[in-house]
Amino acid sequence: MTVIRHEAEVPLSAAGWRFDRALADMFPDYSRSRLVSWLKAGAITLDGAPATPRQMVKGGEHVRLEAELEVEVTTAPEDIALDIVHEDEYLLVLNKPAGLVVHPGAGNPAGTLLNALLHYDARLAELPRGGIVHRLDKDTSGLMVVARSLAAHTALVDMLSRHDVERQYEAVILGTMVAGGTVDAAIGRHMGDRLRQAVRDEEDGKHAVTHYRMRERFRAHSLIQCNLETGRTHQIRVHMTHIGHPLVGDPLYGGGLRLPKGASPELVAALRGFRRQALHAERLAFEHPITREPMSFSAARPDDLQVLIDAMRDDARGAEPDDWL
């Protein structure tokens, strides 16, 4: 079990502050709620004595922090292969395959990314949610960042909340687009289906913004790029459906089979065989939470998505002008 030890003096500039506020300022690597929990447990002392969160400080007092990082998750480790794009002592960046669930839950008690991460690094059990700070849907492929230390976890969560992590996706949608745009529409749980999200009024949903642009147009579909300003559940899937362009293969949001007139046998086979939403997290960029170094990563398009796009290109190339939708 990891033990954290720090000693410091309350800065004179904090005179008159509550102790919990001073602690948050002195130890920014840890969340305020965690510091308060340690304080209440007696793991933090002020001039060698117990203190309370509301206690006022004068500045110059000696603070000692000695706390054990307890196990946060009890999920069993499993030897599941991971595609690690980058790793250092503070974080991992990995390329998640389609079909891999991120967290255990109803219907998926094991065989998840969390199981794999705990096998790769047992210390992740000491971090909230095993170091996972954001997620991808089961059938979405692509890049994720995972914290490996409490300081990195706190910083990454804060960066995500401030929208300081750039997340870029590519998707294949139903219908042909002429240009890009922005969808600014709140998202909340669907009123009639607990598995789905839906565009809601601002009072009932969470603010959500997706920027998109057209990359390539086929006869009945488009390849687009999406950049998230926020990170709501199913955001791209919900927003694209909202503007009338659901993702190809999406089982929840209406990405059904759509064939252009005279579709090639290869395109028919590719569309019938594509059993997931056509969505890939292709780029991730952020400032390293500890070193502040700019970092940028990309993940190649997975084979199944490449086969689908190639079939659409070939079909469009061989079609007559009148057969375009």
Rank of each mutant, 00 (worst) to 15 (best):
residue 124 L to H: 01
residue 109 P to N: 13
residue 136 L to K: 00
residue 170 E to V: 14
residue 103 H to D: 01
residue 155 A to V: 01
residue 78 E to V: 06
residue 113 L to Q: 06
residue 177 M to K: 10
residue 129 R to Y: 00
residue 87 E to D: 13
residue 144 M to C: 06
residue 104 P to C: 04
residue 96 K to D: 12
residue 149 S to C: 08
residue 126 E to W: 09
residue 170 E to M: 12
residue 96 K to F: 12
residue 131 G to M: 01
residue 178 V to C: 12
residue 128 P to V: 01
residue 124 L to P: 00
residue 176 T to H: 10
residue 143 L to S: 08
residue 154 T to K: 00
residue 80 I to A: 07
residue 106 A to M: 14
residue 118 L to H: 04
residue 134 H to N: 00
residue 140 T to I: 11
residue 97 P to G: 03
residue 92 L to Y: 14
residue 159 M to A: 15
residue 164 D to A: 15
residue 139 D to F: 03
residue 164 D to G: 12
residue 127 L to I: 05
residue 163 H to M: 11
residue 168 Q to N: 12
residue 102 V to N: 00
residue 176 T to A: 15
residue 122 A to K: 14
residue 138 K to C: 09
residue 76 A to Y: 09
residue 151 A to R: 06
residue 120 Y to M: 08
residue 155 A to P: 00
residue 74 T to C: 11
residue 117 L to M: 08
residue 91 L to M: 13
residue 172 V to A: 03
residue 85 V to F: 12
residue 116 A to M: 08
residue 167 R to N: 03
residue 140 T to Q: 08
residue 178 V to D: 15
residue 170 E to R: 13
residue 157 V to F: 07
residue 102 V to M: 03
residue 92 L to A: 09
residue 159 M to T: 09
residue 175 G to L: 01
residue 131 G to S: 02
residue 95 N to Y: 08
residue 112 T to E: 04
residue 134 H to M: 00
residue 133 V to H: 02
residue 165 V to I: 09
residue 107 G to I: 11
residue 152 A to V: 00
residue 78 E to C: 04
residue 156 L to G: 00
residue 112 T to P: 04
residue 138 K to L: 07
residue 177 M to L: 15
residue 135 R to W: 05
residue 158 D to N: 14
residue 163 H to G: 10
residue 145 V to T: 11
residue 139 D to S: 06
residue 171 A to P: 10
residue 75 T to L: 07
residue 92 L to D: 05
residue 147 A to H: 08
residue 121 D to I: 03
residue 178 V to A: 15
residue 115 N to T: 05
residue 109 P to V: 13
residue 158 D to Q: 15
residue 122 A to T: 11
residue 97 P to H: 01
residue 125 A to D: 02
residue 126 E to F: 13
residue 85 V to N: 09
residue 103 H to K: 01
residue 102 V to H: 02
residue 74 T to D: 14
residue 77 P to D: 07
residue 177 M to R: 12
residue 167 R to I: 05
residue 153 H to Y: 10
residue 94 L to V: 12
residue 89 E to S: 13
residue 115 N to F: 03
residue 111 G to D: 07
residue 88 D to T: 11
residue 127 L to P: 05
residue 90 Y to L: 09
residue 128 P to C: 03
residue 157 V to D: 10
residue 154 T to F: 01
residue 138 K to H: 10
residue 169 Y to N: 08
residue 176 T to Q: 15
residue 109 P to M: 14
residue 81 A to T: 15
residue 76 A to K: 15
residue 102 V to A: 03
residue 122 A to Y: 10
residue 119 H to R: 11
residue 159 M to Y: 11
residue 121 D to N: 10
residue 91 L to G: 03
residue 80 I to P: 04
residue 128 P to S: 03
residue 170 E to N: 09
residue 151 A to F: 03
residue 156 L to T: 01
